[in-house]
Amino acid sequence: MKIVIEPGRGASHYWRDLWQYRELMSFLAWRDIAVRYKQTAIGLAWAILRPALTLLVFVAFRRMAGLQQVERPDVIVVLAAVLPWQFFSSALLETSNSLIGNTSLISKVYFPRLIVPIAAVATAFADFVVTLMLLALLMPWYGIAPGRELMALPFLIALTAALALGLGLLLAALTVKYRDFRYAVPFLVQLWLFVSPVAFETSQVPERWRAVYALNPLVGVIDGFRWAIFGGGTAFDRMTIVSSAIATLLSVLVGLWYFRRTERGFADAI
């Protein structure tokens, strides 16, 4: 094996290196999962408790605000949105903080830095898999039988993960240089919740605003989740998913571009 180190040359073996370091990536994800609930009294139950409590609050909110609809169980309507939302938001937050959370690794060891944010998404995904059990329990309880639309779920999950990764790459790289993003990102995520159809449904948004609303890439994802879980019985504008897919592709491209461009300076800047 021959390695050449030159200014600007870092790119040459990058993807090969990324493949070689895949084991480290799984170790980092495993570490974050293993450490996550250590020294907590209820451990993994936190992964269920958080979406469950969010679910309760939103269901109560809908009841009070009169947003409740009769034709479908409200709990499932909300849960179908809370799950992708929590996956997306925790993946985005963890990815953004992943580089500065691994400062000692980055300043002391070489590896393709991309594995750090990817491992962060994997960690959030592990939590998400646990929360899916909540859905598996509640669906039969409310008598919802999944249709073949459920087959679209893996695609929607992949879309959510890619969107979080793309934006996360950009934010993680920016956070290395500008620590402002450490404070800005949680705030951004909080605002994003209010403009996403989690506590309400897209059909409750005024008709003339829908086209603008679909610019929020989470609209397509969340509507897609609801559509997949209710077996197609809900209104689902296919254009929103196209808009989500385009936004995801853009964010991955921009995120990757900026990350790769600034990556070689991480060790000096962090």
């Binding site: 021959k2 390695i3 050449v4 180190i5 200014p7 020294q39 000692s104 060891v109 070489y110």
Partner: peptide
């Protein structure tokens, strides 16, 4: 390969391991 040079060239033949600190990445938990 933690940081890039501004000028010049290095050629290394073989697998490189570097130990700039011991216990890098140890997790207390």
């Amino acid at each position: 390969r933690i940081t890039e040079p501004t000028a010049g060239r290095i050629t290394l033949e073989g697998r490189v391991a570097s130990l700039l600190e011991i216990g890098t990445g140890f997790h207390p938990e």
